[in-house]
């Protein structure tokens, strides 16, 4: 449990997907114009990251490594992500139309969101085990969600400010992201090792 929390905190705040690694930047900049759509995309990212990460872990551990086929990793991972997204879309449409209409348009976008593939590749290069990769997926997704709603909220406000014309829109989005990145650097002060020995209190 402690390790789980440790990796969650680390991937959500300290090594934030967007602000420290620039993963998923395209959709981050394109879909952050209004808060409501940003929230929808953020939730979809958490969901897909949390689902694809363990699947890719299993594939990597039980198919690619034993068969010595590691050079096929990119193709298999992207295929898993594309088909998971498709599957999730179909399941949601059938069983949860409410959530489907909320996430609907964003799900296909997510296939080419670098945060998803990047998460899986980081998982491999850091040798995570199954529970760690679930924590990394959820934590990374949560960090991405936080960053995009923060940027969207700021961009909604900045529309009322007098920005130099040449910086309007895209330029400001880049500047704000940079400043947010610096702000998130202050979170490197958190020591995730504090959670290493932590376990949930047992009810008596």
């Amino acid at each position: 449990m402690g390790d789980f929390l440790n990796i969650f905190i680390k991937s959500a705040f300290i090594e934030n997907m967007v602000l420290a690694y620039f993963l998923g930047m395209c959709s981050f900049l394109a879909v952050s114009k209004t808060l409501s759509t940003a929230t929808g995309l953020g939730l979809a990212v958490i969901f897909v990251l949390g689902v694809t990460m363990p699947i890719n872990w299993v594939i990597n551990e039980f198919i690619l490594i034993p068969a010595d086929l590691e050079f096929l990793r990119f193709i298999l991972f992207i295929a898993v992500i594309a088909s998971t997204v498709q599957l999730v879309e179909m399941v949601l449409e059938k069983f949860s139309p409410g959530l489907y209409t909320a996430l609907g348009i964003f799900l296909p976008l997510i296939t080419v969101n670098c945060a998803i593939l990047g998460g899986s590749l980081f998982m491999v290069s850091r040798d995570y085990n199954l529970s760690e990769s679930v924590a990394f997926g959820l934590g990374g997704g949560f960090g991405w969600f936080l960053a995009i709603i923060a940027l969207a909220a700021i961009r909604e406000r900045i529309r009322y400010s007098n920005v130099p014309p040449a910086l309007r829109g895209l330029g400001m989005a880049f500047l704000i992201t940079g400043l947010m990145g610096i702000a998130f650097l202050s979170l490197t002060g958190i020591d995730p090792a504090v959670f290493a020995g932590w376990s949930p209190p047992v009810a008596e």
């Binding site: 620039f22 910086l167 309007r168 400001m172 880049f174 500047l175 940079g178 990145g181």
Partner: peptide
Amino acid sequence: VLPAAAMFVIAVFIWIQRSYNTKLVDVS
């Protein structure tokens, strides 16, 4: 050296480019 610097540098590039070519300015 920090990752955030890349954002600032690109923002400045965008700024310079759009000041020279005002057709590109974002109207919204």
